[in-house]
């Protein structure tokens, strides 16, 4: 193609493994389905005016079913990612970000970059310090919503997994001061996640626009490109 030409030298490599990318997108889809169904469960926005002539309607039950299915998908993705981060060999560069994260100078430089006053810092790990702390917070939110979600789940499904989780659910309930508070926290955490997602998407797009290194492509193809420094 005409507009393609040699543009400096780029080095490339796999930034995100296939498992990583899958869990990211499973998580992303789950979050959207969970928000949509969750708003219904909190305050059903579709209702019937007339009773069903036959007792075969299960609208609320179906919303709940999808909420639970994607809830467990989210749990799977979050657990996978947690184990991946701490133990998988290919997460070595992610773990390297921990050191960067505690580098205050780097953190300020990163903030300065977004305030358009300093250059993008060079980091050793895959996440910059600001990003690292934002993601850490995101995981606090995820685990919070998972724990409250499972507590609500166990109270409805008393057998099988729900039964096994029941003592745990009860301790969550006591800790928060009753099932109503479990529900309230679940709802508040959802809002925190919504805000996180919006900012996250903006930051990803921003870096793709101004980074000009196909940064956003990494979460699809796994490949990261950087201009080689001479």
């Amino acid at each position: 193609m005409k507009f393609l030409k040699v543009l400096g030298e780029y080095i490339g490599g796999i930034e995100f493994s296939a498992g990583y990318r899958w869990q990211h997108w499973i998580r992303a889809i789950s979050i959207f389905v969970l928000i949509a169904t969750g708003f219904y469960l909190a305050n059903p926005y579709i209702t019937y005016g007339a009773p069903s002539p036959t007792p075969t309607r299960f609208l609320h039950a179906e919303f709940r079913e999808w909420h639970i299915i994607f809830g467990f998908a989210l749990i799977g993705a979050v657990l996978y990612k947690t184990i991946y981060f701490f133990f998988f060999p290919e997460a070595k560069y992610e773990r390297a970000s921990i050191k960067d994260a505690f580098n205050i100078k780097l953190l300020f430089q990163q903030i300065g970059y977004y305030l358009l006053i300093s250059k993008h810092p060079k980091t050793t790990g895959v996440y910059n310090p600001l990003q690292f702390w934002a993601y850490t917070l995101a995981y606090v939110l995820f685990y919070g919503i998972i724990i409250t979600g499972l507590a609500l789940y166990a109270e409805v499904y008393h057998q099988g997994l729900g039964g096994a989780l029941y003592p745990f659910a009860k301790s969550v309930e006591s800790f928060l001061g009753g099932l109503a508070y479990v529900r309230l926290w679940h709802h508040i955490l959802m809002w925190a996640i919504i805000i996180f997602v919006v900012v996250h998407v903006y930051m990803a797009v921003y870096n793709a626009v101004f980074g000009k290194n196909g940064g956003m492509d990494a979460i699809f193809s796994g490949m990261k490109w950087e201009k080689e420094e001479h």
């Binding site: 579709i46 209702t47 005016g49 009773p51 309607r57």
Partner: peptide, 14 residues
């Protein structure tokens, strides 16, 4: 509840 049939107003048809 499971059917998604909810009262919207007291004193209504529902």
């Amino acid at each position: 509840f499971d059917a998604g049939e909810f009262v919207e107003e007291f004193g209504s048809e529902e």
